[in-house]
Design a protein around this nucleic acid. Sequence first.
DNA 1: TCCATAATAGGAACACGTTTCAATTTGGGT
DNA 2: ACCCAAATTGAAACGTGTTCCTATTATGGA
Lengths: 200, 200
Amino acid sequence: MNAMNSLTNEELGSTAQRERRRRILAATIELASQGGFDAVQMRAVSERADVALGTLYRYFPSKIHLLVSALQVQFELSAAAMEGKEIPGETAADRVLFILNRNTKMMQRDPNLTEALTRAFMFADATVSTEIHAVGMMLTGVLNRAIDPAAGAIPTDDQVAVARVIGDVWLALLVGWVTGRTSTEEVSRNLSVAIHLLLR
Amino acid sequence: MNAMNSLTNEELGSTAQRERRRRILAATIELASQGGFDAVQMRAVSERADVALGTLYRYFPSKIHLLVSALQVQFELSAAAMEGKEIPGETAADRVLFILNRNTKMMQRDPNLTEALTRAFMFADATVSTEIHAVGMMLTGVLNRAIDPAAGAIPTDDQVAVARVIGDVWLALLVGWVTGRTSTEEVSRNLSVAIHLLLR
DNA sequence: TCCATAATAGGAACACGTTTCAATTTGGGT
DNA sequence: ACCCAAATTGAAACGTGTTCCTATTATGGA
């Protein structure tokens, strides 16, 4: 059973198994960081993680599952770093822009990793829906918090819609950027324009 | 030279060559239509187009180039069908929605083809920029015409920005749809919401 | 401690995108 | 009609994601 999903940390019984999973994801991020999507080769990951190829495939049923799981790890790190902190900015637009520019800067700092994770995200089909859903929830969650930072605020339908549209625009810009069609300046500028069109 | 670009119809000297190109693109669309991205296998395309594998690669330097060129063909067909006709709708939002819903319906009619072309578009890197640019121009062109249908109207900066954002949202929704994360109803609904947020 | 079962290792094998190359065909200039 | 350069063919070969299989090793219950 479960042949279609990545093994989560919680599903893994023994310490040794959780440790294997950790090594695999660490190796994935290292390789992605060094050479992007193409450098994340399943044989290379398995060797660097000191795990047999078959084991790698037991933990993550495809390269895409592996990379989307790595994306999830990165998002969790990023979300944890923001937790508890107040998002700077007077207006909703300022705060959203702050969040997204923060992410954009992170991406610029490690373009290869960004390319690898984004490509995987865009290529992921329905079999990766569990992992994708987790990532999507985290993104809209932080956007909603930026739009309305009141503790425990329930976002209105309109706010949810705006957050989703902004997320879509960000995704599209990301694609343009990782595929070398859009410069970082254009990403920032277009993002800013979109946010001001939506949050006015 | 030119080892990185697809051969365009105009660059091909002889009738036989233009005919080969036509057969290749026809075979691509047939295969995509039947089985989506995975079914567009280079050997299969070359066989169905009655062309050697090496020739296929001379015409289109990669599977992605091939599929994005096929996308271009489809867009040209779609644009030609709209040419001269007035876009129905009272407001800019109505007209834009009409255009995009029309495309969405086309996609639903041939989901495999849509999946193949969209996946290729999303995976295309900077080496496909020529083909991508042509497609992008056609999309923003028709969106601008929907926003301001006056003959020869020069779109304002704001209109251009709105058109670009709408295009981005559409792309993101398309991705969600082809990867099985979003239903067609959600695509239509979210598109409508986004357009009304942007064109108000 | 010993056994049954699951997990892992190690490696061969397959599929498909891509490259390469020698032999053949085509097409245009003389 | 002939020749040269370019285009095409046909087929082999390579890289990487994925699958499969057998032998070995961990693990947890009796």
